[in-house]
Simulated assay, not measured.
Amino acid sequence: MNSVYDQLLVREHLSRATPSANLSELEETALREQVKQLLVDHNAVLIAHYYTSPVIQALAEETGGFIGDSLEMARFGARHPAQTLVVAGVRFMGETAKILSPEKRVLMPTLEATCSLDIGCDADEFSQFCDEHPEHTVVVYANTSAAVKARADWVVTSSIALQVVSSLHEQGKKILWAPDKHLGDYICRETGAEMLLWDGACIVHEEFKAKGILDLKKVHPTAAVLVHPESPASVVDVADVTGSTSQLLKAAGELPNDTLIVATDRGIFYKMQQENPNKIFLEAPTAGQGASCRSCAHCPWMGMNSLERMASSLKEGSDEIHIAPELIQNALIPLQKMLDFPKD
Results as ranks from 00 to 15, higher is better:
residue 238 V to G: 00
residue 98 K to Y: 01
residue 219 V to H: 05
residue 15 S to I: 02
residue 81 P to I: 13
residue 255 L to K: 02
residue 307 L to K: 12
residue 217 K to W: 06
residue 142 A to P: 00
residue 106 V to S: 04
residue 213 I to E: 00
residue 343 K to A: 15
residue 148 V to D: 08
residue 174 K to Q: 15
residue 343 K to P: 05
residue 233 A to I: 08
residue 291 A to N: 15
residue 314 L to R: 07
residue 303 G to I: 13
residue 10 V to C: 08
residue 303 G to R: 12
residue 216 L to I: 05
residue 270 Y to T: 14
residue 83 Q to P: 00
residue 34 Q to Y: 13
residue 83 Q to N: 10
residue 88 A to W: 05
residue 281 F to Y: 01
residue 84 T to Y: 08
residue 94 G to P: 00
residue 219 V to A: 11
residue 63 T to G: 06
residue 148 V to C: 11
residue 314 L to K: 09
residue 102 P to C: 08
residue 281 F to M: 11
residue 71 L to H: 10
residue 211 K to C: 03
residue 283 E to H: 03
residue 224 A to K: 14
residue 217 K to P: 02
residue 243 G to I: 11
residue 182 H to W: 11
residue 98 K to C: 06
residue 23 L to Q: 07
residue 60 A to W: 02
residue 7 Q to S: 15
residue 218 K to C: 07
residue 177 W to F: 05
residue 99 I to T: 08
residue 98 K to T: 04
residue 244 S to V: 09
residue 315 K to S: 15
residue 38 L to P: 00
residue 111 L to M: 10
residue 336 Q to S: 09
residue 292 S to A: 06
residue 59 L to F: 09
residue 317 G to R: 12
residue 258 D to H: 06
residue 87 V to C: 01
residue 216 L to V: 14
residue 225 V to T: 11
residue 183 L to Y: 10
residue 6 D to K: 13
residue 238 V to L: 04
residue 220 H to F: 14
residue 115 C to G: 03
residue 198 W to D: 01
residue 262 V to Q: 00
residue 2 N to C: 08
residue 289 Q to S: 10
residue 333 I to R: 07
residue 181 K to Q: 13
residue 329 Q to D: 12
residue 75 R to P: 11
residue 182 H to P: 12
residue 136 H to T: 04
residue 185 D to G: 15
residue 286 T to G: 09
residue 240 D to T: 13
residue 299 C to H: 14
residue 142 A to I: 15
residue 162 L to I: 07
residue 95 E to A: 03
residue 120 G to V: 12
residue 223 A to V: 05
residue 267 G to M: 04
residue 252 A to N: 04
residue 326 E to G: 02
residue 248 L to S: 00
residue 142 A to D: 06
residue 85 L to Q: 02
residue 281 F to C: 07
residue 67 I to E: 12
residue 47 I to T: 06
residue 73 M to T: 00
residue 8 L to T: 12
residue 208 F to C: 07
residue 108 M to V: 06
residue 90 V to E: 01
residue 50 Y to A: 05
residue 330 N to Q: 15
residue 184 G to Q: 05
residue 279 K to M: 08
residue 284 A to Y: 01
residue 190 E to W: 02
residue 253 G to C: 14
residue 39 L to W: 00
residue 191 T to F: 00
residue 86 V to T: 07
residue 132 E to H: 04
residue 10 V to R: 11
residue 43 N to P: 00
residue 291 A to G: 10
residue 233 A to C: 09
residue 289 Q to K: 11
residue 35 V to Q: 05
residue 90 V to H: 05
residue 95 E to Y: 01
residue 259 T to G: 09
residue 19 P to K: 13
residue 56 I to L: 03
residue 162 L to S: 07
residue 79 R to W: 05
residue 281 F to Q: 03
residue 242 T to K: 09
residue 204 V to Y: 00
residue 323 I to S: 11
residue 242 T to R: 10
residue 285 P to M: 04
residue 83 Q to Y: 01
residue 249 L to K: 12
residue 222 T to N: 14
residue 179 P to E: 09
residue 79 R to M: 04
residue 152 A to K: 09
residue 129 F to K: 04
residue 119 I to C: 13
residue 5 Y to M: 06
residue 290 G to A: 04
residue 274 Q to L: 15
residue 329 Q to V: 11
